[in-house]
Amino acid sequence: MDLFTYGMHVLGSGAIAYYSALQIRDLKTRPNILAGFQLAESGSVPFLTTLSERAANEGDTWLAEKLAKHASDEDKHGQIFAHSLKQLNKEVISFQNKTQNTTETTSGKTEEKKSERSRSPFFAAYFRGYSSEQLKPLHIDWNTFIGSTYILELDASKDFTRMANILPEKDTVTRTLKLGMLSIARDETSHAAYLYEAMMRRMSANEVQVLIDEWRKRKVNAMWAFASNLLQRQEEQPSLVQDSTASKKEANTEFAVA
Rank of each mutant, 00 (worst) to 15 (best):
E214D: 13
L34Y: 05
G7M: 08
Y194E: 04
T103A: 15
E116K: 13
A227R: 02
T29A: 10
E133G: 03
Y18Q: 14
S42V: 00
S190P: 00
R201Y: 00
S52F: 06
L135V: 03
S20W: 05
G14W: 03
L179F: 08
V45S: 04
W224K: 01
F95C: 04
E250A: 13
W142K: 14
Q96Y: 12
G36R: 02
N32A: 07
S107V: 01
T5E: 04
R218E: 00
R162Q: 12
T245F: 10
K249W: 12
T245H: 04
A227C: 08
A15I: 11
P31S: 06
I140T: 03
M200S: 14
E197A: 11
L34G: 03
S132L: 14
H139D: 10
Y130R: 09
A227T: 15
E188V: 02
A82N: 07
R119N: 09
G180H: 04
F122D: 03
S94H: 09
L34W: 04
T253G: 10
S183I: 00
V210F: 08
T103F: 15
K114R: 13
F47T: 04
R162I: 13
S118N: 13
L177M: 06
V208P: 05
P121I: 06
S42G: 09
N229W: 09
M200I: 09
E133Q: 12
L182M: 08
V220Q: 01
S148I: 02
S244H: 02
A40D: 10
L154S: 12
A21R: 06
S132N: 13
K219T: 06
L135C: 04
V92E: 00
A192N: 03
N252R: 13
L231H: 03
A164R: 00
N221R: 08
P168C: 06
L231V: 10
A124D: 10
S107Q: 02
T61A: 15
E104A: 15
M223F: 08
S72H: 10
T29R: 07
N57H: 12
V173W: 02
E112N: 10
G180F: 02
A205E: 11
G147E: 01
K178V: 09
F127P: 01
K114E: 15
A251H: 04
Y6R: 11
P137T: 00
K109A: 15
F95Y: 10
S132E: 15
S115M: 13
L138F: 11
P121W: 02
Q209E: 14
N221T: 06
A193D: 11
N89H: 09
F81G: 04
S13W: 06
M163S: 08
K28N: 09
K86W: 12
M163F: 08
V257R: 12
I33N: 01
Q237A: 15
K114A: 14
S120Q: 06
G14I: 05
K90C: 08
M203W: 01
Y130C: 09
L85H: 01
Q237F: 12
A185S: 07
G14H: 02
R30Y: 06
W215T: 11
M8V: 02
D155A: 12
A222N: 00
V173L: 08
Q79V: 02
T50N: 14
E214F: 05
D213R: 00
M200K: 15
A71T: 05
M203L: 03
L48Q: 06
M223W: 09
Q234G: 14
E91V: 07
P238M: 11
G147R: 04
A17D: 13
R175Q: 14
P137F: 05
A225Q: 04
